[in-house]
Write a protein that binds this DNA or RNA. Structure first.
Lengths: 149, 149
DNA sequence: TGATGAATTGTTACTGAATAGCTTCTGCCC
DNA sequence: GGGCAGAAGCTATTCAGTAACAATTCATCA
């Protein structure tokens, strides 16, 4: 999936939503799209400063808030990092597999898993509004590299 | 479950493990035991300072690291808070239901849920080493209060 | 008892994460 | 062009977490 294609899809969604895909927001979006895996807000800020020298933490966090609202990115809670979602046409909860070796993140969308969590919560009378399901470990490709060495 | 009972159980486990349940560690343990729900490291630090004026962030984080190693506490990743676990006799992954109204945290231990997540990961060739499963929302008792008002 | 080595704690300093509050600018609608 | 709302600038601050090194405590073994 090319970056340009992602950008134009995002731009289109913003138009539909009546939201403004401003220059800064687009830049942050592109930086995220360039990143393999998650990236921290301050690293993102450093990169943004190369074209927006005046950028400050608030600049990044406002952009990240916007991108989150539009459903373009996920936050990785267990590592305080942000991740571009490549199928943002509909908001969806995701489960993340985060490789601690290569930083790659695999995004899952298992309905049974969510439903089971939902069911357990309901049993306790708990109303879920937001869920975080993440695993850290080692991805397939890193495991293979390890086996071959 | 009384605090004293928790403390003595913790002390016993430390003895068995050959770990030292020092004064600072016990104080942090007690502060966590006094807390309803999760608590942030710096709030914990403020409380600890009342009896340990020299305490610094490192003091708290070292104690928290120790208590985590012993399996006495969980970290709530989605709110950067720490929570005493009341059944720490065996290390176990937990799922947390965090009420955003009253701050209460319900701890679940669903084996099916973990296994399903495990299975999904395996399908992708991913080896899970640590998992975070949390939900934010509203607990039963807060929902009832709401209904009655 | 006294030496010693490891674990614990003290101390200073720093980086990274996130938000608050207020000002300025920009785009849009009338 | 005037006024309004949303976006971005700016300053400052709080919270979260770690690094590095010095000082201390403690169990143990000679």
């Amino acid at each position: 999936m090319s970056i340009e294609s992602l950008v134009s899809r995002a731009r289109h969604i913003c138009e539909v939503n009546g939201a403004r895909f401003t220059s800064i927001r687009e830049k942050v979006f592109r930086l995220l799209a360039d990143t393999h895996g998650g990236i921290g807000a301050y690293e993102l800020l450093d990169q943004l400063k190369q074209t927006e020298p005046a950028a400050k933490p608030a600049t990044i966090y406002r952009a990240l808030d916007f991108l989150t609202e539009q459903g373009f990115i996920h936050k990785i809670e267990s590592s305080n990092a942000f991740l571009l979602c490549h199928h943002f046409e509909e908001h969806h909860p995701a489960q993340l597999l985060i490789c601690d070796r290569c930083n790659h993140v695999e995004e899952l969308h298992s309905t049974p898993l969510q439903q089971e969590f939902q069911r357990l919560a309901s049993e306790k009378g708990f109303l879920i509004q937001r869920q975080t399901i993440e695993a850290h470990g080692i991805c397939q490709s890193c495991l293979k590299k390890e086996a071959n060495s």
